[in-house]
């Protein structure tokens, strides 16, 4: 039997056993890291976006150093890659993709959605971003050009979308509830329900 034919559960158990035997890690640490990973959801990114919409100082910090901004909200960033934040404006819309694999800002957005990892999205986002956005039903300002960010190396990227019209005076919590996963990848833009 080859490695590829071996049951993945058995392989995982063998790997865990070796890591423990060599003193590299133990069951408790693995369980802790799984819990940390599972706890990350797009609500974290949405909270950052909403805060940036109401707090210019936080917005500046977030654009300069996304990881530091996340940590200031209590989001654990230990061991995570640098977080870059891409600011959408009326003239510039960002779309994030990882053509090589599925690099994703997991600390602030959680697990990547299934389509983000699909070969179709990865191939088309860099070539026909306009067509991809149209399929999502996303309408950009006429003035906007599209900038695709291919996440190929050590950074992870999230989009800071534009605050929708008609949300003056809204609380941070209410604003955060508007922000969806796709808005922070750039396939969609936040909208009033």
């Amino acid at each position: 039997m080859t490695l590829l034919e071996t049951d993945s559960g058995r392989l995982l158990a063998a790997l865990r056993g070796l890591l423990a035997e060599k003193g590299i890690t133990d069951r408790a640490e693995i369980a802790e890291r799984i819990a940390v990973t599972d706890a990350a959801t797009p609500e974290r990114g949405a909270a950052m976006v909403a805060k940036a919409w109401v707090d210019p100082g936080f917005r500046a910090l977030m654009l300069a150093d996304g990881a530091q901004a996340a940590e200031s909200l209590g989001i654990p960033m230990r061991g995570m890659p640098p977080l870059g934040v891409l600011e959408n404006t009326p003239d510039l819309h960002h779309l994030v993709v990882c053509t090589l694999c599925s690099c994703y800002p997991r600390a602030v957005l959680g697990y990547p959605p299934f389509w983000f990892k699909s070969t179709s999205y990865r191939a088309r986002a860099v070539r026909d971003p306009e067509g991809v956005l149209a399929e999502w039903g996303t309408v950009l300002p006429a003035s906007a050009t599209i900038r695709v960010v291919d996440s190929t190396a050590d950074y992870r990227w999230m989009v800071l979308p534009m605050r929708p019209e008609g949300t003056d005076g809204w609380s941070e919590e209410r604003l955060a509830a508007l922000v969806r996963e796709g808005d922070m990848i750039g396939v969609t833009v936040p909208q009033l329900a």
């Binding site: 860099v126 067509g131 960010v149 050590d154």
Partner: peptide, 20 residues
């Protein structure tokens, strides 16, 4: 420039990539 990479690429769109 995406259009320089692919003849049928989105006109006017550009691409940022991390390269060593």
């Amino acid at each position: 420039d995406i259009r320089r990479l692919w003849a049928d690429g989105t006109p006017g769109a550009d691409l940022l990539v991390e390269v060593f």
